[in-house]
Each structure stands twice: as structure tokens, then as C-alpha cells.
Computed example of a mutant assay.
Amino acid sequence: MKLTMEQRIALHGFNNLTKTLSFNMYDICYTKTKEEREAYLEYIDEQYNAERLTSILKNVSDIIGAHVLNISKQDYEPQGASVTMLVSEGPIAGVPSESFDESPGPVMQSVVAHMDKSHITVHTYPEYHPDEGISTFRADIDVSTCGEISPLKALNFLISSFDTDIMTMDYRVRGFTRDIKGHKLFIDHEISSIQNYIPDDIKSLYDMIDVNVYQENIFHTKCRLRKFDLNNYLFGYTKEALTEEEQRLITESLQWEMDEIFYGKNIM
């Protein structure tokens, strides 16, 4: 039974459940020459520098109703960036009933909720294959909250903030809280799949698989972009500049790379 504003269970004290969303995305690009690779990495470092990532995380904090206490950010050499935010509870003005629904959150709007001290982090990892023309960009974001709203409500916004070929999402609820009679509650909202927090128009673009351990309140979803257009993976030119054989070989190389990332293993 879903919890509504009228049906919410009265708790003894503060909601001590910890809810953590880990959002991991990959962008893949074919960079044939050293110059192309350097240009791609420069583009990524500019597009997802510490300042831009800070803006993304501030929007996430608004969505989950948090106050930012402290920000630590860093651009790295030769590439990559990190941002860490400590956040505290936002104003308590009543938690909206949709906070408990298995449905996508906003792309960007303020949602007032009750949270305790929590954190939001992002780390980026641009990298490239030493000799096979593949460059990848990975971003890892963790949103950890205590209180009544799930960080899954920020998932829709996170997806919209990145150009993503492959996404991996993990959600886990830890600890317990008590109702007014002292009974332990190990989760305070229903969830059957992370997919239910992703809009239908986004889901239609991806092949998706779930691995869920319901008795442990652990939920895992992987997504891989369905449509493959070689032009989206070439940096600075289009496939018309390539021979048909070059197009075939590059397509095979890119799809091999995506298969290995999606399935999490080397394919021999």
C-alpha cells in the first residue's frame, strides 16, 4: 500500500533511514588521432568543469529540499573534476504526497522536504584507450539523504543534465526508524524498480535491465542507448568523410566498447 499524506505512519522522533542514490553515466567517442583525443578531452573538461558540476548539484539540492552548508570543488590536471556538498534539512512546510509516489521527479523545481545532514558528490573521469581510438567520459554522482524524501526524485534532472550513452543506477535504503509504538521500519515508501522514476520518453530511448534484491532494499538498473548513429560518436567531422569500411570498423569498435561497459566485463 502506498503511503499518502493521510496514510503516512506516525514516527517516533526523526526519520533515521538513509537513502542513497548512485548515478553513473558514460559518454563514448571515437577519437582517431592524438589531436582529436586532446580536443575531445578539452571539450569535456570545459563542458563539465567544477563550476558547471556545482550548478548541477545545487539544482539537485533544491529538488530534494536541502540547504547547502559547504561546497568543496576542484578541477584536476590533466583532466577531471570533483565537487562535494554537505547539506542540511530544508524548511519544513509539509512533504508533498508525490514524494512517496513511484514516479519521475521534476527536471527542475523546488521541492520542500524534511532532511537531516546529508551529502551530494560528483566525480568525473575522462579517459582514452592508448591505441584504439576510443575516448570515454564517466561521471559518478552520489546523493545521500536522511528523512522523508527519496533522492530518486532528483534522477530525472540528473539524466537531463548529461549526454549519456550508458547509465548505471543504484538505490539503497539503510538503517531503520521507529513508529510511535516502537516497531522498526526498514523502508518508508514502496518501490519496485528505479525505472519507475524515469520518464517514459527517456525510457523509450534505452534498453534497460534490473537486478533488485527486495528483501535488502537494494535496487539496480542499467540503461544503454538503443539507437546508434555513428555521427554522434565522431568528434569534429561526420561519417561522410569516411569510407564504408572505415565506418564499419569504427562502428564495431564503438559497439564493442559499449558492450563491455554495459555488461561490466571484457569481451574476448
Rank of each mutant, 00 (worst) to 15 (best):
Y26E: 10
V95I: 14
T243C: 11
F262P: 00
M85K: 07
I63W: 12
S110V: 13
I56D: 10
C223R: 00
F14Y: 11
F157Q: 00
G236K: 02
G13T: 08
S97F: 03
P78L: 10
Q255Y: 00
T251E: 09
D210R: 00
P126A: 13
G13Y: 05
K58E: 15
S55V: 13
L155D: 02
E102R: 03
D45Q: 04
P78E: 06
M25L: 05
L152I: 11
I63G: 04
E102L: 07
Y43A: 13
I44T: 09
Y206E: 01
H123Y: 08
I149K: 07
K203R: 15
L254I: 15
Y206W: 11
E190S: 07
V173T: 14
I198W: 06
N24W: 03
F137I: 09
E127Y: 12
A113W: 00
L155N: 02
L230C: 01
Y263E: 02
I71Y: 04
M85F: 11
T145G: 02
D75R: 03
L249S: 11
I180D: 04
V143C: 09
I159Y: 10
F14P: 00
C29H: 02
L230Q: 05
A139S: 13
S192E: 14
V68G: 07
S55H: 13
T84C: 03
F219E: 04
S82F: 09
V87R: 07
D165W: 05
A10M: 12
K153H: 12
P78M: 10
G105Y: 03
D27Y: 12
C223L: 15
K32Y: 15
L185S: 08
Y48K: 05
Q74T: 11
D131L: 05
V83H: 12
K2H: 09
I141P: 03
I9T: 15
F14M: 09
V95E: 09
N266D: 05
C223G: 15
Q109H: 06
T164I: 15
I218D: 01
Q74M: 13
K184A: 13
D207I: 03
L21V: 14
I92G: 01
G264H: 08
I198P: 02
T4Y: 09
L185K: 10
L17G: 06
T136E: 14
A139P: 03
S103Q: 11
P91G: 01
K58R: 14
L225C: 07
T145L: 14
Y125F: 12
D201Q: 02
Y206G: 00
N196A: 04
T54M: 08
Y43K: 13
Y48T: 07
A39Q: 14
I9E: 14
K222I: 00
E98L: 07
V173H: 02
K117N: 09
S161L: 05
T238R: 06
Q47A: 15
V213Y: 14
Q109I: 01
G264K: 14
S55A: 14
P199Y: 09
S72D: 10
I194C: 10
K239G: 01
I159V: 06
T20N: 07
K203F: 02
D170K: 09
Q109K: 13
H189Q: 11
E127I: 00
H183A: 09
L158H: 02
H119C: 01
T145E: 06
S135M: 04
T164E: 05
E190M: 04
